[in-house]
């Protein structure tokens, strides 16, 4: 069974996929031994909202996508403040950054060599 070899390690995706499917089937069988029933259309199927009235429409329960990385942005706010300030929205500024970083990489490469 051939796999991918990096020279430092190896990975065989087919072996993993076979193993994964095998264990998935076993997990499915184990789960199917459990109780699958519940009372549809009762208060049981309303989501838990800490005692608040549950709205009937899914839209009213939606949490907006811009909260997605809130923890990361809040935790690293000092970094994000600085980086956001650099984002001027002017194309020539971005090209200048690109050329500058490229030049820096070349200098590092020359120094390393």
């Amino acid at each position: 069974m051939n796999g991918l070899t990096s020279g430092f390690g190896a990975w065989n995706p087919i072996a993993w996929a076979l193993l994964f499917v095998g264990i998935l089937v076993v997990s499915f069988i184990v789960r199917s031994l459990g109780n699958k029933g519940y009372k549809r259309g009762t208060g049981q199927t309303k989501v838990f909202l800490s005692g608040n009235e549950e709205p009937d429409t899914p839209d009213a329960l939606h949490v907006r996508g811009d909260h997605l990385y809130w923890g990361m942005i809040d935790g690293l706010s000092a970094y994000y403040r600085r980086v956001k300030a650099w984002h001027t929205g002017i194309l020539s500024d971005y090209v200048a950054w690109f050329v500058g970083v490229l030049g820096l990489v070349f200098v590092i490469l020359v120094l390393v060599r």
């Binding site: 499915f28 459990g34 109780n35 029933g37 519940y38 049981q44």
Partner: peptide
């Protein structure tokens, strides 16, 4: 847990909701 009821909330995406515990375990 295996003998308790397996509740799927009204607005859940049923197949995804039921599949993910299996994917996590496997």
């Amino acid at each position: 847990l295996m003998v308790k009821e397996n509740v799927v909330p009204d607005h859940a995406v049923g197949w995804l909701y039921n599949l993910m515990p299996l994917l996590s375990l496997a």
